[in-house]
Design a binder for these strands. Structure first.
Length: 186
DNA sequence: TACTCGATCGGA
DNA sequence: CCGATCGAGTAA
């Protein structure tokens, strides 16, 4: 089983639920150098202008403009002048929200995975679709009960206690046996 | 235009 | 624990 997840699927207002649902899905990167598929293992939700950890907390700006688009486009920005960060925009138009992809199989950490998959700001604003060379597939992974660990988000202490404590980070427990109906093919 | 600092990482 | 590294955001 190998099903493209259409960009339209990310236009729901329930960003936290979308974030959780991305675990076990595959991030596919296709460039001149070839194609790579990696299972998503760690994500965080950022939801709306009210969310003081979200880049849209102070309203629209040049950088976060893409977050106001309908869900299903990539939001890629440079962090600490060094690391490209990959987010999937969620929600309807004018609802600034996104899911930060923090880890995939074989690459743990938001900066590391973008480096491993040749992802940078040139992808900012492009669709989560084949034509962009970066999309998401459901390959039939079934997560066992208890496979998902929920924690507060990383590196957002300055958002104030209420928002810093939100349990909006989702991680696949390492070592948990994952059922893949596609037979474990990479 | 100046100045601050960040959704991180790797090395001391 | 600390420095790298640079552009967005803010204030003026």
């Amino acid at each position: 089983m190998r099903r493209l997840v259409k960009a339209k699927a990310f236009r729901s207002k329930k960003t936290v639920a979308i974030a959780r649902s991305l675990l076990g899905k595959f991030l596919i990167r296709s460039t001149a150098h070839g194609s790579v598929a990696r299972m998503i293992t760690e994500v965080e939700a950022y939801d709306g202008e009210r969310d003081q950890a979200c880049h849209a907390r102070n309203g629209p700006t040049a950088r976060n403009a893409v977050m106001y688009e309908p869900g299903g486009v990539w939001y890629v920005y440079l962090c600490y002048g060094v690391h490209e960060m990959l987010n999937l925009v969620t929600g309807p138009k004018a609802r600034p929200a996104a899911v930060l992809i923090r880890g995939v199989e074989g690459a743990s950490g938001p900066g590391r995975l973008t480096q491993a998959l040749e992802i940078d700001r040139r992808l900012n604003g492009t669709a989560c679709a084949f034509k962009s060379g970066l999309w998401i597939e459901d390959r039939g992974v079934r997560l066992p009960r208890g496979a998902i660990k929920v924690t507060p988000r990383i590196g957002v202490e300055n958002a104030g206690p209420l928002w810093a404590k939100k349990p909006w980070r989702f991680v696949l427990h390492p070592g948990k046996k994952i059922m893949n109906t596609s037979g474990g093919r990479p």
